[in-house]
């Protein structure tokens, strides 16, 4: 039995313009000690899906799912109180913005000790010793003196380390890292990722890494979920995904990797993820897809052996009787075509 099993998770927000489906039928499964990645561009619902799992969405969110099991417990049916015993202890989450995610009015030490006290208890001395140990573990120099520091007295990288220390304090079995390095310098990014991987190996945690960086995925993950506009468009293990991407979006994301670029210009996928007001009919990716047909523009695709596409790619070519690359294909054809 997997540690975490999510089936058909959807999240809708009530907005001034009506309901907005930020997450649409997403599945996620992860085993003890496994590392999964969720990739996708900004606005594809990566954060929202994991915040739904944590129960951290605002009241405007409506969450539905067929299943949301963690370690045999159904998170959908347990009470808020029981859920709080799991959140922060067995499942914890690191956020994108280290500078604003720590409380400015409390010291680093207080914020770390607080979570241990809440879930495991202990005397003040024990808590302090544990906090120092954790700060050392995440690579903060002179941890004793850092206990009394406030978040604004430290750099973003240091704050993110504090955040990690806080979130692994109760030995979670599942850690969700939501773009933990996006707000940091490139050199610090690598250090933090290394730290997370290291912790994951040593402690046998399951790790869900949210990122929009395919390069990071290649280096770290075992299983990859590709999300687009709230939908899960492809799910594969990392080797297969890189060797044989089946969804045109995954294909485009991979082509946009600098290593794979042949020309001088760094390719990117033209267009943006549709929001509330510009949702296309049919397949949500069709306006940006170089293989889009009339069928794609009118009928939403069904899940095709883990790929959400009418014409899954094989060796970069659409199958399933694709009528051939249409001439009105997207303007992305040129940017993408050059690298195939």
């Amino acid at each position: 039995m997997s540690l975490l099993e999510i089936r058909n998770l959807s999240v809708e927000f009530e907005t001034a313009h009506g309901l907005f489906r930020a997450v649409d039928s997403v599945d996620l499964e992860i085993d003890q000690g496994e590392m999964a990645a969720i990739v996708g561009e900004s606005g594809s619902g990566k954060s929202v899906s994991m915040l739904a799992l944590m129960g951290l969405l605002p009241w405007t969110a409506r969450i539905t799912a067929d299943r949301m099991n963690f370690d045999g417990q159904d998170l959908l049916t347990i009470s808020q109180k029981e859920r709080r015993k799991i959140i922060g202890k067995d499942i914890s989450m690191i956020f994108q913005e280290p500078m604003t995610s720590l409380n400015p009015c409390f010291t680093v030490g207080y914020q770390i000790m607080e979570v241990i006290k809440e879930h495991l208890g202990g005397t003040k001395k024990e808590l302090e010793a544990r906090a120092v140990e954790l700060l050392g573990l995440v690579g903060i120099p002179a941890p004793e003196s850092r206990l009394r520091a406030f978040p604004h007295q430290m750099s973003g990288g240091m704050n993110q380390r504090v955040m990690i220390a806080m979130m692994i304090a109760c030995n979670p079995r599942l850690l969700i890292a939501d773009e933990p390095t996006t707000a940091l310098d490139v050199t610090i990014q690598a250090q933090i990722l290394e730290l997370l991987q290291d912790l994951q190996h040593k402690r046998g945690m399951a790790l869900v890494l949210i990122t929009h960086d395919m390069g990071v995925v290649a280096e770290t993950a075992e299983v990859v979920n590709v999300q687009y506009a709230g939908q899960q468009v492809e799910r594969q293990n990392v080797v297969d995904l890189f060797a044989r991407p089946q969804h045109p979006y995954t294909h485009a994301l991979l082509s946009a990797l600098p290593e794979r670029a042949t020309g001088k210009r760094l390719p990117s996928i033209p267009g943006v993820v549709p929001g509330l007001l510009d949702r296309p009919t049919g397949c949500l990716f069709n306006p940006r897809c170089q293989f889009a047909t009339d069928k794609c523009r009118s009928t939403p695709p069904a899940l095709h052996s883990k790929v959400l596409c009418h014409y899954p790619l094989v060796d970069g070519k659409p199958t399933n009787n694709h009528p051939g690359v249409s001439s009105q294909g997207s303007s992305g054809q040129e940017a993408l075509g050059g690298n195939v």
């Binding site: 944590m54 129960g55 951290l56 605002p58 709080r84 015993k85 799991i86 959140i87 922060g88 202890k89 914890s92 989450m93 956020f95 913005e97 604003t100 995610s101 720590l102 409380n103 400015p104 009015c105 409390f106 607080e114 979570v115 809440e118 879930h119 955040m163 806080m166 979130m167």
Partner: peptide, 26 residues
Amino acid sequence: GEDYVRTAKAKGLSPFRIVGIHALRN
């Protein structure tokens, strides 16, 4: 609505601590 209140929730703290300590202090 601040990020650090979300963090406090993510720590599994009681609503009393989240509102009465983390939010109120600010």
